[in-house]
Design a protein around this nucleic acid. Structure first.
Length: 476
RNA sequence: GCCUCCGUAGCUCAAUUGGCAGAGCAGCGGACUCUUAAUCCGUUGGUUGUAGGUUCGAUUCCUACCGGAGGUACCA
């Protein structure tokens, strides 16, 4: 079926070729932006516009066309009897979706629309496949993700989301640079995938005859830079995690990590709050996102609450005094499945992640997580069992963790040994060596950019804020 | 991985209890010199995701597979 539509367009293409016209023509110079035509309108102003034809309205001897470029839309008006052979052939072979260039003079139509009275025009690129329907647009989610270009062409909301994403990222960079943070790039191919706990992607490095991993986090390299004299440093780039797809997970996702020598978790807490508010302001729409129940108010100051308190609020004030058996029973009464080997830390984490986290809609800094859960963070000065960290939750999603970074090499080695549980090859000796040379006390944080953009744009799925999200390959 | 729902023309959607697969838009042909989802007349277009099964008869019921959505699992 589409074959027939395509054949019709191929025939037009041949017709152009037969007349000596290249349907995939050369560059088009001295272009006028569509937006410029209306912003700087002058009756009779000569302009040259180029773009994709989105609408064609034949009307006897005249034809109206809507042309769109990156700046906006401009209407073209063709008078067949006042145009040459070339233009008449073009009109005959023109389809919605084609790229054309046109020169002419600006005027207002009777209804007041800025329009180019076309004097000359030529085909710049003939499209062979039809654009999705203009009125209902493209709704099919699968097609929107797989052929994002079509989604971007016909769904304005989608264009707006990605413009917002671009603006948010730009303002984040500017915000950090203005405060003296330096952007760096560290390896994505790593021989040990450290800095987080996640299954990595493995690939083959043929020249070295060895396997390497795509990074799951840049953390351990950024800390080496603190050792190397960087004091305020950040990286804003992709991480890769070999895990399932979901509404909130894409295997490659964008992460901001920031480190500041001589700072701590509190330094980072202040920074991330200002940074997110700045991004929200840039994206626009105020500090209250969404409406009704699901609304999220980003107005500072944000709630700060200890992990233990949240857990006791939910699971009982005596939660940390009862036995593991009692905790297991109580957790199971919340509908959770608890493996028998789990102790206090694991059961508590399960309760937190499954029953508490998603209820935290307003921005909330959860502080003082159990030290065992965060092996790269420093314990609190007043309590060795709690780590001096925060987890920023917004809209029920983990948006940004922040640490007072562990800079004691001996303590870091001990933690790695516990974590590696015998598999000593997984310990990053090179990183430990760097710590032994001395890393200044520091604060560090990470911001999940995709999730942040979801919140700022009100997107329901991470796929909606990633241009080409991961999908299963299409077979047949 | 598991559970539920979904898949019909290029796009957006219909199709009664299992009974001839339809509409709008786009396309094609024609009319029309300021249209705006232009209008009017005519018209093409389908292996109903794929492969099987039940049935006189399947878009509809059953099984498997492919893909998508939501949930769940994995996930510092």
């Amino acid at each position: 079926m589409s074959e027939e539509l395509k054949q019709q367009r191929l025939n037009k293409l041949e017709q152009l070729r037969a007349a000596g016209v290249d349907p995939y023509g050369a560059k088009f110079t001295r272009r006028t932006a569509a937006a410029d035509c209306s912003e700087n309108f002058r009756e009779g102003r000569a302009v040259r516009v180029a773009g994709r034809v989105f609408s064609l309205r034949g009307h006897g001897k005249s034809v109206f066309a809507d042309l769109r470029d990156a700046t906006g839309r401009i209407q073209l008006y063709f008078r067949r009897d006042r145009l040459g052979e070339g233009e008449n052939l073009l009109l005959q072979c023109l389809d919605r979706g084609d790229f054309i260039g046109a020169g002419g003079k600006l005027f207002h139509t009777r209804t007041g629309e800025v329009t180019v009275q076309v004097e000359e025009a030529r085909m710049l690129s003939k499209s062979l496949l039809p654009l999705p329907e203009k009125w209902h647009g493209l709704k099919d989610r699968e097609t929107r993700y797989r052929r994002r270009y079509l989604d971007l062409l016909v769904n304005e909301e989608s264009r707006e989301v990605f413009q917002a994403r671009g603006r948010a990222i730009r303002v984040i960079r500017r915000f950090l640079e203005e405060r003296g943070y330096v952007e760096v790039e560290t390896p994505m191919l790593q021989s040990l995938a450290g800095g987080a706990a996640a299954r990595p992607f493995r690939t083959r490095y043929e020249a070295l005859d060895t396997d390497v991993f795509l990074r799951i986090a840049p953390e351990l390299f950024l800390k080496r830079l603190l050792v190397g004299g960087y004091e305020k440093v950040f990286e804003l780039n992709r991480n890769f995690r070999n895990e399932g797809l979901s509404r909130f997970h894409n295997p490659e996702f964008t992460m901001l990590e920031v480190y500041e020598a001589f700072g701590d978790a509190r330094t980072m807490m202040e920074l991330v709050g200002e940074l997110i508010v700045a991004a929200a302001r840039e994206v626009g729409g105020g500090l209250v996102r969404g409406e009704g129940e699901g609304a999220i108010d980003l107005t500072p100051p944000w709630r700060e609450v200890r992990y233990r308190e949240l857990v006791m609020e939910r699971a009982g004030g005596d939660w940390f005094e009862i036995s593991d058996e009692g905790r297991r029973a109580r957790a199971e009464s919340f509908g959770l499945e608890i493996p028998p080997e789990w102790g206090e830390i694991e059961i508590t984490r399960e309760v937190f992640e499954k029953t508490i986290e998603k209820t935290l809609r307003a921005p909330t800094f959860v502080t003082r997580l159990p030290a065992g859960l965060v092996p790269l963070a420093k314990p609190c000065a007043d309590d060795p069992d709690s780590a001096d960290v925060f987890e920023l939750i917004i809209g029920g999603l983990e948006i940004a963790p922040g640490y007072t970074e562990l800079n004691d090499p001996l303590e870091q080695l001990r933690r790695f040994q516990v974590q590696a549980a015998g598999d000593l090859e997984r310990i990053d000796e090179d990183f430990l060596t760097a710590l032994e040379h001395g890393m200044p006390p520091a604060g560090g944080m990470g911001v999940g950019i995709d999730r942040l953009v979801m919140i700022l744009t009100g997107a329901a799925a991470v796929r909606d804020v990633i241009l080409f999200p991961q999908l299963k390959p299409r077979k047949e």
